[in-house]
Amino acid sequence: MTEQSLLKLSIVATIALAFCGIGAGLYSGSFAVVFDGIYSLTDAFMTVLALSVARLIAASAQPKPEGKLVERFTMGFWHLEPIVLGLTGTLLIGAAFYALINAVDSLKEGGRLIAFDYAIAVTFVTFAVALAMAWFVSRKNRTLKSAFVALDAKGWFMSAMLSAALCVAFVAGYMLLQTKYAWLAPYTDPGILALVCLIIIPMPLANVKQALLDILLVTPPELKQHVDKVAIATVQKFGFSSHYSYVARVGRGRQIELFFIVPQNWPARRLEEWDAIRDEVGRELGGEGHDRWLTIVFTTDEEWAV
């Protein structure tokens, strides 16, 4: 199964669960269940964006890409990936903050009584489906190793945990109705919603942080060290004066620019010899493929490198 087909399956399943959750929440009177549906619907919308970006990246990686978009974005579409990932995390955090505010407001007003039996059934089914999808998507991503699919799997897992927490809370609320603590039952729905929101809000922060680093072209230390190690060995092997390296990670793409400073008045070399050095450096760097943008320049003028 490809990245795109897996994301398509996830989109269909997410939208189906989302509408079922929103409808069930409105019927049972549970804003927590409605939030679960809205959260899933937001996740589905962002997965559609992720699928579109994945298609663009795949199209631009073809040997002879065609299309107006490819012509307008000759540097590729890698930069869209961290934008989508960051936007996804930000929207999910925003939705959780909004739900938290509503939950606190409801608690202040004495809570709300809901149809616990219906809410229990719906949240249990949602939990089972979401957990199965989280396992399935994570298993498939062992070979795909896609950041989009990984985030989608995390979204399914978060949805499963949210549904499980809601189900347990509704069972507890239903049991409270049969006791002298029945007055606490109306606080069950907003109380568990507030707790779930406090747990969910920090979860996408790591993805947002990484997306921001990619958007700002912050150099990954490990990649920079590896590139410099290969470049220094090349300088010593061929007798170059020095080197300059510029490295960035943008989504799944790695952008590497290497400038080797050649001593002046060196004996002339054929272009094939310089190309052979480039090929050797490329092999030492590793990771050759559509997601690596490698530029290697040889010059005697340092101003071209700085």
Rank of each mutant, 00 (worst) to 15 (best):
L258K: 00
R249G: 12
A248D: 04
N265H: 09
I261A: 12
R252V: 09
R254T: 07
H243D: 14
R252A: 11
G251P: 02
H243Q: 15
I277S: 01
Y244K: 14
E257Q: 15
E257F: 15
G251Y: 01
Y246F: 15
D275C: 02
I256N: 05
H243A: 14
V250D: 04
V247S: 02
W266A: 14
L258P: 02
R254M: 02
V250A: 10
Q255D: 08
E272Q: 00
R249Q: 13
A248F: 04
H243E: 05
S245F: 08
P263R: 05
A268W: 05
H243I: 06
D275I: 01
S245R: 03
I256Q: 10
Q264I: 07
Y244M: 11
R252M: 05
N265T: 02
F259T: 03
W274M: 07
I261Y: 06
A248I: 04
I261N: 10
F260Q: 07
R254W: 03
V250C: 11
P267E: 15
N265R: 04
Q255T: 04
S245V: 09
L271F: 13
R269N: 04
V262I: 09
R254S: 10
P267I: 03
I277K: 00
P267F: 11
R270M: 12
R252Q: 08
I277W: 01
P263G: 00
L271N: 03
L271S: 08
V247R: 00
G251E: 01
E257H: 13
N265F: 03
W274C: 03
